[in-house]
Write a protein that binds this DNA or RNA. Structure first.
Length: 972
DNA sequence: AGCGCATCCTAG
DNA sequence: TAAGCTAGGATGCGCT
């Protein structure tokens, strides 16, 4: 079986066909590590520029080179090297500062597997510039009003070369993009993670949902994305109170051609240039600002000051009349900043950008960041236009480790975008060498286009419109309002024709409602490794099905049996109910009683509102699923339909939540909610009993949660498992009223059931599926509250176990990874945690959590840096006193910390983070993972030193000792 | 050391 | 201001 000696060429370890000698693969990785962990020694096809510049930098005249800053020269040399196919950096010489490639500080998101645009191992350049005062001068943030004659001359001389230069710069941009499919994989991350598919670490596969547009009619919507550049002070973030807007970049897009334009997409800019009036387009030296920088392909307008810029923007609005205003981070980088800046200058821009300029009450924005506004995306309110804060939308699209533009673009667009500090961008924009301004402009244009691309690729507008139509609510409310609003919208449409009026309980009434008495069934699993087939079945939309099947509704509920038969009113939901005894007598044969003793009328007497509504939703969902079968080959359409049916499923499921809502509920009713839960529980229990009692299946239920059954079929082959699984599903379905349906989901072979809500297995969903899919629930591989190293090591170990069943391989692997950590050969990103910041007011006084502590420090540093509510705050654990780990913020993962070098607490990472989850998993097969660690040589360092670490600008915030915060809070 | 509590994120 | 639900595991801190 083992095929020794096959070299792992692409370093893609397919664990499915496990033919790679693990040791060899490891040693090869070790080789790579010595050079650099982040780089590939070879240029991949997509890295090479499509059009090599005809004029290489070496052809530039010497004085021209001198005119450029040393940095640019270096960068260009670097480029030329790369174009010759030697992207590999020179071995590092301690004497010379290393030179960064053009996008000098590309952001590497949580997984750094790509060999593109390599951040050279050490690039002290930026730091040096910042530290030396003389150096600071030429690239300081304050623009020089006049250029010295020499530089003007040089500019003229360079004029002819501007275009080739631009092309050189452009090729870097091209290299930044890559085609995922044909690029060979290069696992550059130090901690070896999963290797089945998804080799780049993308969480999202590429599919353009807009391709499914055939379905849509033209919506005649115009979108306008905007990103602006402000002149910042030193290392501070832009602040509209102080920092003027220098330029504003926008991207317009419509599904029909734009007015006065031949295409449906357009990128433009409005630039402040106080000398613009004196510009002479005929002469290069005095040409408009961006022309001097070699920018073309943009619709550029110039303004002599910010107020004129506002006027120009209003003109753009008049011309294109955008329906949707888009920004990746609206508040500080886009529309929010614009409005706040305008307000600071005494201009009420909000009014003038709206479609109803006269309404000063409704046209508003919150200058102060407030948690409610941030949370609900209602910070900005411009009548007639919708403002979208894209990062918040993306948060609902996928569970990522962080939602920076760079990381989201990496996972969704499969593109790398560099991240620059505001200071770098300010320096570039105001630099005497006009070419630098090109870089800044290019940066913003890429981002504003990238933001638009994200929106379009995910078809956010299309899907949101779809949900708005399905629920019958406004577009913006789909994004800003909760699920009660959706349920009510649908429910009231059904209720009104039937002449029902919804109850509106007061806060007191709601609080007085009796407590719920039923909870769903969660079995304690038989926790062990299962080498036999385990079939997973679950009830399709169980709660909604039960509501339909048993006619459970507010309008059909008669209350508890014990309360009936009396003429008096009794407590019911948030209010009370009276059921006349003689009426009850009349109905005596038309009632059902739920397992918890609540009486409901049969649908033959009165069809409930909830049941009819849910039936409609489920039927629609079935229709959608059927059309998915019809269009199976159209992947994009499939995904769209999938999203639609998911939306329907969601609303079906939260309908139960509506009845059971306790503290925020607008019309809760425990009786109804409890009945649903209890009936579901009884249904599941009946199914479990049936499976266990039917001898011919030879089956035993080993786990179940709410609506699912895990059935062990001892000795059954995969084929038999599918057959029996389907039989069970049919048999159980037959014993339940329509539309309650038990569905065969998957076969696990093998699997591990760890605890309640935590399990993992190799999954087969159909008989003809050859390769299993790694499917994990609840364990660390799917959680985002550990560091990536944890999930990577765990996932790989489990796969090794499943495939080889050879524990010595797992042991070797785990020990190898521990050594890497101990030797400081691990990548920082694998050791970076990220936790959500909930906003300062939502923590208990004295709370002591990293996200909160770090936020406090950030505020002390620069008030603009406080994380947004629900933003994820990244940090690492640095070396501290034993048992008292320090945390350190990692804000911009690409800033380079030179010295003294960051010291991460290796012992903490291994013994507290990586090993415990492994131990829990492997304990189940009788293996003591910690003893593997004990066997490692003791001489190893207990800290990891990172000399060339990509760290934050904010290192000067310093590490935080976690108990400090708590002590402070309790003492005051 | 053991308990209670807060926090985070996931399953359903 | 508006805000579907509960169960569950795991970690880390403070207190006894």
């Amino acid at each position: 079986m083992k095929n020794k000696g096959i070299r792992c060429e692409s370093s893609e370890l397919s664990l499915v066909s496990h033919q790679v000698d693990i040791d060899q693969a490891f040693s090869q990785n070790d080789d790579d590590e010595k050079s650099t962990c982040l780089e590939s020694p070879e240029l991949h096809p997509w890295q090479q520029s499509a059009q090599p510049s005809p004029l290489g930098p070496q052809q530039l005249s010497e004085d021209c080179l001198q005119a450029l800053s040393p940095r640019l020269c270096d960068a260009m040399e670097n480029l030329s090297n790369r174009e010759e196919g030697s992207a590999h950096p020179l071995p590092s010489t301690p004497l010379l500062p290393r030179t960064p490639p053009l996008p000098s500080t590309p952001l590497l998101p949580s997984t750094p597997p790509l060999p593109s645009t390599p951040p050279l191992p050490s690039s002290p350049f930026l730091r040096r510039r910042r530290r030396s005062k003389e150096d600071l001068e030429p690239i300081c943030s304050t623009p020089k009003s006049e250029e010295d004659p020499v530089s003007q001359r040089l500019q003229q001389r360079r004029r002819s070369q501007a275009d080739p230069l631009k092309r050189v710069l452009l090729t870097t941009q091209m290299k930044n993009q890559f085609a995922a499919l044909n690029a060979p994989k290069k696992d550059t991350s130090q901690i070896e993670g999963p290797s089945i598919a998804n080799s780049y670490g993308f969480k999202i596969s590429m599919q353009n949902l807009q391709e499914a547009k055939a379905l849509h009619e033209v919506q005649h919507l115009t979108l306008m994305g905007m990103e602006l550049h402000a002149r910042t002070r030193r290392d501070l973030e832009p602040d509209p109170e102080f920092d003027p807007i220098c330029a504003l970049f926008y991207c317009l897009s419509s599904d029909a051609p734009l007015p006065d334009a031949d295409s449906s997409q357009l990128t433009g800019a409005i630039v402040v240039d106080k000398d613009h009036e004196s510009c002479d387009p005929g002469h290069r030296a005095t040409a408009p600002l961006l022309v001097r920088s070699g920018v073309s392909g943009l619709q550029v307008k110039y303004a002599t000051d910010e107020k004129v810029l506002f006027q120009e923007l209003i003109a753009v609005f008049r011309r294109f009349d955008p329906d949707v205003l888009l920004g990746y981070e609206v508040q500080m980088r886009s529309w929010g900043y614009l409005l706040q800046r305008a307000a600071a200058l005494g201009v009420n821009l909000c009014q003038q950008l709206s479609r109803v300029p006269g309404d000063s009450k409704e046209n508003r924005f919150d200058a102060e960041r407030d948690e409610y506004g941030a949370d609900t995306m209602t910070e900005i309110n411009i009548i007639g236009r919708i403002t979208l804060n894209l990062w918040r939308v993306m948060k609902t699209e996928a569970a990522l480790n962080n939602y920076t533009f760079e990381n989201v673009a990496f996972h969704f667009l499969h593109q790398r975008f560099p991240l620059y500090t505001p200071r770098t961008l300010s320096d570039w924009f105001d630099h005497n060498t006009h070419l630098y301004r090109w870089k800044a402009v290019d940066h913003y244009v890429c981002r504003v286009r990238g933001t638009m691309q994200l929106l379009q690729q995910q078809d956010v507008i299309g899907r949101t419109s779809e949900l708005a139509r399905v629920f019958g609510i406004q577009f913006l409310h789909v994004l800003t309002r909760g699920s009660q609003y959706r349920v009510e919208s649908m429910m009231l449409r059904v209720a009104k024709p039937l002449n029902y009026i919804p109850v509106t309980p007061s806060v007191q009434q709601r609080a007085q409602q009796r407590a719920p008495q039923c909870i769903p069934l969660v079995m304690e699993p038989e926790s062990r490794f299962y080498s036999n087939s385990v079939v997973v079945l679950d009830f399709q939309s169980l709660y909604p099905s039960i509501v339909i099947a048993y006619n459970y509704c507010y309008s059909t509920c008669l209350g508890h049996v014990d309360s009936l038969g009396m003429p008096d009113e009794f407590r019911f939901g948030c209010t009370s109910l009276r059921v006349p005894p003689d009426l009850l007598y009349q109905l005596r044969n038309d009632i059902t009683v739920s397992p918890n003793g609540i009486v409901f009328i049969k649908s033959s007497v009165r069809r409930g509102v909830l049941p009819s509504m849910l039936e409609e939703i489920l039927n629609t969902r079935i229709m959608v699923k059927q059309s998915m079968k019809t269009y199976k080959q159209d992947k994009a359409l499939m995904k769209l339909l999938h999203a639609r049916q998911l939306g329907l499923k969601l609303i079906a499921n939260v309908t139960f939540g509506y009845t059971a809502a306790n503290y925020s509920g607008r019309m809760p009713c425990v009786e109804v909610g409890d009945s649903i839960v209890h009936k579901a529980r009884e249904t599941l229990e009946r199914a479990i009993k049936m499976v266990n009692d039917t001898k011919k299946w030879g089956a035993r239920v080993v786990y179940g949660d709410t609506d699912s059954l895990f059935v062990l079929l001892k000795g059954a082959t995969k084929e038999q498992a599918f057959k029996i699984g389907n039989e069970i599903a049919e048999a159980v379905t037959a014993t339940n009223p329509k539309p309650v349906k038990l569905k065969f989901e998957k076969v696990y072979l093998p699997c591990v059931l760890q605890t309640k809500k935590r399990y993992v297995g190799y999954m087969y969903e159909s008989l003809d599926q050859k390769e299993p899919v790694f499917d994990a629930k609840g364990i660390e591989t799917v959680r985002r509250d550990g560091c990536p190293a944890v999930s990577k090591v765990l996932e790989r170990s489990i796969k090794l176990l499943f495939e080889s069943r050879d524990i010595s391989q797992v042991k070797r692997f785990v020990q190898h990874q521990c050594m890497k950590v101990l030797d400081g050969r691990a990548s920082m990103q694998d050791l970076t945690f990220a936790k959500e910041y909930r906003g300062s007011s939502s923590y208990r006084p004295g709370a002591c959590v990293p996200a909160l502590e770090l936020s406090r420090r950030m505020m002390a540093y620069d008030r603009r840096l406080e994380p947004r509510v629900s933003e994820r705050v990244p940090y690492v654990i640095v070396y501290g006193m034993p048992g008292l780990p320090l945390i350190q913020l990692v804000r911009r993962p690409l800033e380079v910390l030179q010295d003294p070098g960051l010291r991460l607490n290796a012992t903490y990472y291994i013994t507290k983070q990586i090993l415990p989850p492994l131990a829990r998993m492997f304990h189940l097969i009788g293996v003591d993972v910690f003893s593997w660690y004990q066997e490692l040589p003791r001489v190893r360092r207990r800290e990891m030193r990172f000399q060339n670490v990509f760290l934050s600008d904010l290192c000067n915030i310093g590490a935080v000792r976690m108990s400090d915060g708590a002590r402070k809070a309790t003492s005051t």
